[in-house]
């Protein structure tokens, strides 16, 4: 199995707050990998770092065997007191849109659908880099088949959708670009158990049938571990455990801290 995503010892800071401290993890081609951790552990920060929405201050990130972000020993260069995302000496650091162009799609925390746009326009935006109108139309129909509720609402403004519908739209939007790596930030947050189940089933289908590699972040450890091949546990910006998900489900520490067993 080859590593699709290889994160090596990255750190991210918000001012003086160190949100990630030398985090290393990897995701193999074809896997579903989950990252669990409590509120504020740094899970979202990690996903943002992968897509260059937050600059790293240490380490490197490789995708498909190529560096997409890398910091030399001197640390990030600074400008106006904030680390800049891309400086001339670090030409290997890609911008967010470039990373998207390489086939990485993120379903962000809180869904972040374009509220003032219709369902269909949101899907169009997901296909922004697809320049083939026929392919876009075909993809949209696929999405409406996959998530029938979206088909019924295609001309509706997104702000009128329910939370679950918005989550499905956010996933569908990410799939419009036919990504190789799908990153999901708490896809189950705030949703009813039945809907969460439905969404995780969909994630499975995407992984199995479309050969999309999935890296997902969840607070709901039980459902995330059951849905994934491998898992990482993060505490205070540090990876404290990593193992096959089946083992993590049995792990005493995990059971006590994240699965509500005492």
């Amino acid at each position: 199995m080859s590593k699709l995503l290889d994160i090596d010892s990255i750190s991210v800071s918000y001012g003086s707050i160190k949100a990630l401290r030398e985090v290393s993890l990897h995701v193999n081609e074809g896997e579903i990998v989950c990252l669990i951790g409590a509120n504020g552990a740094g899970k979202s920060t990690l996903l943002k770092a992968i897509v260059a929405l937050e600059p790293i201050t240490h380490g490197s990130i490789a995708y498909q065997g190529q560096m997409i972000a890398q910091i030399d020993e001197n640390g990030a260069k600074k400008k106006f007191g904030v680390p800049i995302r891309r400086s001339k000496g670090l030409s290997s650091n890609l911008r967010t849109d470039e990373i998207a162009g390489r086939g990485v799609a993120l379903v962000p925390e809180g869904r972040r659908v374009f509220a003032d746009m219709t369902v269909e326009e949101n899907l169009d935006m997901g296909a922004f880099l697809v320049r083939d109108d026929e392919l876009i139309a075909r993809k949209k129909e696929e999405m409406y088949d996959f998530f029938p509720i979206l088909g019924a609402r295609r001309k509706q403004k997104t702000r009128s959708l329910s939370g679950g519908e918005q989550q499905m739209l956010a996933i569908a939007r990410a799939l419009m670009s036919s990504p190789r790596l799908l990153l999901l930030d708490e896809p189950g947050l705030g949703l009813a158990p039945l809907i969460i189940q439905d969404i995780f089933e969909k994630i499975h289908i995407i992984n199995r049938e479309d050969k999309v590699t999935v890296f997902l972040v969840e607070q709901n450890a039980s459902i995330a571990l059951k849905a994934s091949n491998r898992g990482y546990v993060m505490e205070n910006g540090v990876i404290v455990l990593s193992d096959f998900s089946t083992n993590l489900l049995e792990n005493e520490k995990v059971r006590a801290a994240y699965l509500g067993d005492s």
Partner: peptide, 24 residues
């Protein structure tokens, strides 16, 4: 237009627009 929609997306949510591959 494609660029016009990208403009609206960028004004609604710049980071998410970038995630769509839009050069903000």
């Amino acid at each position: 237009s494609r660029i016009g929609k990208a403009m609206r997306a960028t004004s609604l949510d710049q980071d998410t627009a970038k995630l769509m591959g839009i050069k903000a």
